[in-house]
Design a protein around this nucleic acid. Sequence first.
DNA 1: TCGATATAGTTTCCATGGAAACCAAAAGGC
DNA 2: GCCTTTTGGTTTCCATGGAAACTATATCGA
Lengths: 150, 150
Amino acid sequence: MTAPSPLTAHLGYWLRLVSNHVSARFAERLDRLGITVAEWVALRLLFDADSLPPSQLAARMGLTRGAVTKLADRLRARGLLARSADADDGRGVRLALTEAGRALVPALAEAADRNEAEAFAALSAEDRALLHGLLTRIATRQGLTAPPLA
Amino acid sequence: MTAPSPLTAHLGYWLRLVSNHVSARFAERLDRLGITVAEWVALRLLFDADSLPPSQLAARMGLTRGAVTKLADRLRARGLLARSADADDGRGVRLALTEAGRALVPALAEAADRNEAEAFAALSAEDRALLHGLLTRIATRQGLTAPPLA
DNA sequence: TCGATATAGTTTCCATGGAAACCAAAAGGC
DNA sequence: GCCTTTTGGTTTCCATGGAAACTATATCGA
């Protein structure tokens, strides 16, 4: 009958602590540009993909389709994203960046770069590589090259 | 003029991906016991502290006081937590576990232990220690032995 | 001691995201 | 070719948590 594990006994606790902090700081930076973290992820994915159905975006972001509908509405209202009907599928929709959306991405990426540098300043380049290796090892073992959902 | 960094270029991305996944899996486990992750954290902190003012709990959990008020209400409604007036400060409140709340903590801690084992199964004991070291190094550098808030 | 200020807690309002119900179109079985 | 089932997307409802306003008490300075 040992004492119940304290919070700090779990790697999961530290992972969450650091991750939340890094994301919160990143959110602050993005906020200055009027963008949320989720919006950044969507914009960056669409930057490469050119156009995606909401379901694809949802899968890659680890969100539900419902959440993506709403996210897309917000981005569309600000003129950063356009929605068009899928030519082949009467139900389908394609999401794509507008010119304004595309033009915004580099600045956001720079914010991400700066955040990254600041967040992991405590680690040497080798240690950062080490951390990267450990995290990706867990990720692949858990089968998540993509979604943290369910 | 290089291309904007892809999401996967940032450690922060992997950190968030893995952290969210681990927390989501943990949330599933706790859900079977009718508890959320935030509730677990509160219960575990109160288990050691015996009694805390809401502001203290908020600080240690990285939540606002408003959020703690509501969290405490939920736990109180389920008979896991009791609220009492502070003897010395007319404004103050003390939160403490009920017997039922206290009795629940060991089972929750075991769920946390099992989650931990499953989540980091990809890593050897040495690698887990390594990861722990890297994360705590970042945490202390960022001044967060406690709150991811602000 | 009284008035100004600070502090503890709560409440209200808002934003985000999940779950599930729902609708329309496509695909499959016969 | 129909009827059932599946799939893509949206909508509705709910839960959680932050921000800011608000209340009550305590503290500080003159």
